[in-house]
Amino acid sequence: MSRPVKGTAAVQPLDLAASDEKTTVAMAIELSHLKKSYALKPVLRNIDLVLPRGQRLALLGANGAGKTTLLRILAGLSKAGSGTVFIEGLDSRYELQEIRRQIGFVAHQPYLYEELTVLENLLFFGQLYAVAQTRERAMMLLQRVGMERRSNERIRALSRGQVQRVAWARALLHAPSLLLLDEPDTGLDQNGNQLVQALLDEHTARGGSMLFTTHNLERALSWSDRIVILAGGRVVYQHETASLTHEELVQRYQEVVR
């Protein structure tokens, strides 16, 4: 399997797409026999999961099913107890910093600095990701999410939905090839949701992949190519979205999540 070249090369300016060299890897995510425990309590039990590049995967499950732990491991915030995690062909045990360059993260909390302005937040994160021409790229993304006129306002002066839009701009700033989204629809109005849908379409059309968690089954169906349900730290159900109706998903979800 060929891998992206390691290094600190800056993101190309005004390029929302993942770079060509990233597209040589077939799988965005490969998990094999992944286990994780906290204080001897198993949270993830023998997870095997793959996400081909360019695909969208919805991760469903009740609270405590292990969704957030799985996302934290994928994002490099937690270490796997055992098993292997490959992101874009990179081994999380040895190439974590390189993996972090490939990932964009949006959570249900925006995690932006409230005392900094919208633009200052993006410039700060742009510097951390070594994005070239950060200001131009930040302004372009703010325009894309409809926040360019609020660029000089502090985050604490914005509404929840507006902050979430800025969080989306921040997640796309370094042109990640994989988006990890933890209940990303929280706080968004209908326009916001349409915007996110469009951003995700653009991301996957350019070969990017995404994995997201949600409690909204309808959204899981409309945003994903495949659905995976976690229960008790295990994958208990997975199915292609194209051949799944909302009623079938609700029925399955109620069967496996108790």
Binding site: F105, Y111, Y113, E114
Partner: peptide
């Protein structure tokens, strides 16, 4: 407390 340290750790910063 605000989760910002985790957000910082998500970035590829030494």
């Amino acid at each position: 407390e605000q989760g910002m340290l985790d957000r910082l750790l998500l970035t590829p910063v030494d």
